[in-house]
C-alpha cells in the first residue's frame, strides 16, 4: 500500500479554452473595488498588486483600460526620501516594492517622473559586505532581494552601482547539491528562490555557474501527474509555479523538458469561467497574482493570443527590448 501522490484531479468539466475577455474584465473590476475588506487586507502589497494587474493587462493587449496617470501619481507618492518605495501610502520603503514600482514605471515608460538617482542610492545602500542584500534597513537577508536589487538596477541601466562579483558570490553560496537555490546559505531549494537566483545570474551574465542539467532535472520533477507544477517536493501543484519553474527552465534553455500539453491543460483548468481570473488550483478563489502567472506561463508555452513575456523580468518582451536591457539565456 502506498500513499497517493499529492496532486489534484482535473475534472472533465474544467475550462479547456483560454477566456481572455473574462480575465480582462476581472482585472479591470478588481482595481475598482476599493472599499472591501480584502482590498484593505492586501494594501501592504499594493505596489506589487498593481504591477501584477498592469503586466497581465499588457500581456493581454489591454493596458489601455487602466489609468496611466492615476497609477503614476500613486507610484510617485510612495517614494520615500531615502529613494525606496513603500507598498502604498503610509508603508515603509522596501526592495520588493521598489522593484514593483520600477517595473510599473518601465511598463509605462515613466521612469523620468520619479527621482531615479535616489532609487539607485537606496538599492546600492542595501548591499552587505558579503554581497547579500537587505530587503530594507531592518536587515532581513534573502536571495529574493538579490534579484530585486539587480533587476531594479538593470531596468535603470545602472548595474555598476553595486559590487557585482560579491552579489554573484552570495547567490552561489546559496546553491545546494541538487542544483537548486535557497533563500540563504544552507536553506532548502525552492522554485521561487531558484527563479530569483537564476534570473539574477542571467542579468549579470553569469549563468555558467548554474549546473543546468541537474537543476533542469530537479525543476522538471516538479511536474505532477495532473500536469501542474509544484514548488518543492510533496507540495500541491500551483499555477504560480507555472511561472517560477517554467521561467527558470526557459532561462537555462530546458523548457522543452516538461510535458507542455499537460501543463497547458492544468493552467486552463485553474480559470474561473464565471468571474474570470486564475486560481492556484482548479476550483479555488481567483486573484490577480495567480492570474498574471497563469497568463505569463501560457505565454512562455507559446500561446499565440498572449504577447511574448520576458522570462527574467516577467514583463512584456517588447518593453524589455524598448528599454534595451540585455540578459543571458542558455
Amino acid at each position: 500500500m502506498g500513499t497517493p501522490v499529492k496532486d489534484v484531479e482535473l475534472k472533465d468539466s474544467a475550462p479547456q479554452n483560454l477566456l481572455l475577455d473574462k480575465h480582462v474584465a476581472y482585472i479591470e473590476a478588481y482595481s475598482a473595488k476599493k472599499d472591501e475588506y480584502e482590498y484593505v487586507m492586501t494594501e501592504y502589497l499594493r505596489m506589487s498588486g498593481i504591477y501584477w494587474g498592469l503586466t497581465v493587462m499588457d500581456l493581454m493587449g489591454s493596458l489601455d483600460r487602466m489609468s496611466r496617470e492615476e497609477v503614476l501619481d500613486f507610484v510617485k507618492g510612495c517614494q520615500h526620501e531615502c529613494g525606496g518605495f513603500g507598498a502604498s501610502i503610509g508603508h515603509d520603503p522596501h526592495l520588493l516594492y521598489t522593484l514593483s514600482a520600477v517595473q510599473i514605471l518601465s511598463l509605462y515608460d515613466g521612469v523620468s517622473s520619479v527621482n531615479v538617482e535616489k532609487i539607485i542610492e537606496f538599492v546600492s545602500s542595501l548591499q552587505q559586505p558579503d554581497g547579500s542584500f537587505y530587503g530594507d534597513k531592518w536587515g532581513e537577508v534573502d536571495t529574493r532581494f538579490s534579484f530585486c536589487a539587480v533587476a531594479c538596477l538593470a531596468l535603470l541601466k545602472k548595474i555598476d552601482a553595486i559590487n557585482v562579483d560579491k552579489a554573484v558570490n552570495y547567490v552561489l553560496s546559496c546553491m545546494n547539491f541538487d542544483g537548486g537555490f535557497g533563500c540563504r546559505p544552507g536553506s532548502e531549494s525552492h522554485s521561487g528562490q531558484i527563479y530569483c537566483c537564476v534570473g539574477m545570474l542571467s542579468i549579470l551574465n553569469r549563468l555558467h555557474h548554474v549546473q543546468a542539467d541537474m537543476l533542469g532535472w530537479w525543476l522538471c520533477e516538479r511536474q505532477l501527474p495532473s500536469g501542474g507544477l509544484n514548488g518543492r517536493p510533496e507540495k500541491l501543484p500551483d499555477v504560480c509555479y507555472s511561472w517560477w519553474v517554467l521561467a527558470s527552465l526557459k532561462i537555462i534553455g530546458r523548457l522543452h523538458w516538461i510535458d507542455r500539453d499537460k501543463l497547458v491543460r492544468f493552467i486552463l483548468a485553474c480559470q474561473d469561467e464565471e468571474t474570470g481570473g486564475f486560481a492556484d488550483r482548479p476550483g479555488d478563489m481567483v486573484d490577480p497574482f495567480h492570474t498574471l502567472f497563469g497568463i505569463a506561463g501560457l505565454s512562455l508555452l507559446g500561446e499565440r493570443q498572449i504577447r511574448g513575456v520576458n522570462p527574467v523580468f516577467c514583463m512584456p518582451e517588447d518593453v524589455i527590448k524598448r528599454i534595451g536591457v540585455s540578459m543571458q539565456l542558455l
Binding site: 542595501l126 558579503d130 559590487n163 552570495y170 553560496s173
Partner: peptide, 21 residues
C-alpha cells in the same frame, strides 16, 4: 547595530570571502 549600514561602500572591491556578516 544592524540598522546602520552607512559605512558600507557598495563599490569597494576586496576579498570576497563567504563570511556572513
Amino acid at each position: 547595530d544592524i540598522v546602520d549600514n552607512s559605512q558600507i561602500e557598495p563599490n569597494q572591491s576586496g576579498n570576497p570571502s563567504l563570511r556572513v556578516s
